[in-house]
């Protein structure tokens, strides 16, 4: 099959950026989307032209490195699928495909499809942890944790930190990312201790980093490659109100 790509090319955060078109012949339907881009880059490199920069690493849908808006949807809109797990058989022969980077004030473009997601790190650093020391902790079984609670916590912990929630949000809000971590820790006895401080610090950091406010569009859940549920944002709101009352 063959496809026509429209790819965002931008040579740094201060460059204007533009869409460029590439005809891609000989695409195998078994190829992953990134392997198809590899082929485009191979042809560009052979030609001595600047290759398309895109973030990728594990290529098995868990590292959260890949970050492309494909045809207007982060990760391409296949349910629970990252770009690296998206395969060309999902596209029709001759399809036109638009490939763009995450776009948000908090995510400046580094080059082409690569953005700087350092703002997400700052949210985590503000409180996405329990302040336990290495060593000197209680036995793992000292505090029983109900299976339902452990499962709830794990559901929240599935977040891979890719930033699709921000990219899909009309407000560029990072509330699903923040909520997932707040919720994961807030239900566990180990995380409850600092729950109030954590929710305040993390939501404040999200604001400082220039993310927008959540207005409940729920686009984040729809485009999340791990299907992280917006109930964790509700949980964050609940935790926030509890913290306010303190």
């Amino acid at each position: 099959m063959k496809v026509k790509l429209h790819v965002w090319r931008q040579n740094g955060p201060n460059d204007k950026g533009t869409m460029e078109t590439y005809e891609v012949p000989n695409v195998s339907s078994d190829q992953s989307f990134l392997e198809m881009l590899d082929d485009v880059n191979l042809a560009l490199a052979k030609d001595g032209r600047d290759v398309i920069a895109f973030d990728h690493d594990c290529r098995e849908g868990i590292c959260g490195m890949c970050s492309q808006v494909i045809n207007g949807v982060p990760h391409g809109g296949q349910e629970r699928t990252t770009v690296c797990q998206l395969h060309m058989r999902e596209f029709e022969d001759g399809a036109e495909i638009f490939v763009e980077p995450w776009k948000a004030r908090a995510f400046p473009v580094i080059k082409d499809l690569v953005v700087d997601r350092g703002a997400l790190e700052k949210i985590m650093q503000a409180g996405g942890y329990t302040s336990c020391h290495t060593g000197g902790v209680a036995d793992g079984n000292a505090l029983p944790i109900g299976k339902d609670i452990a499962d709830y916590s794990m559901d929240a912990a599935e977040c891979i930190g890719c930033g699709a929630c921000v990219a899909s949000c009309p407000n560029s809000s990072a509330m699903l990312y923040t909520g997932a971590k707040v919720a994961q820790l807030a239900v566990l006895p180990q995380g409850k201790v600092e729950a109030h401080k954590r929710v305040m610090a993390m939501t404040e950091a999200a604001k400082e980093q220039g993310f927008g406010n959540c207005t409940n569009h729920y686009e984040c859940q729809a485009s999340c490659p791990k299907g992280v549920n917006v109930k964790f944002i509700a949980k964050l709101n609940r935790e926030y109100m509890k913290a306010l009352c303190k």
Binding site: T130, V137, G140, G146, A150, D151, M154, Q190
Partner: peptide, 19 residues
Amino acid sequence: IDQCVAQGVPFARDYAGYL
């Protein structure tokens, strides 16, 4: 294992709440 539990790693648990 103890360290990870203290960090909030959501290990699988049985119905009694143990690892």
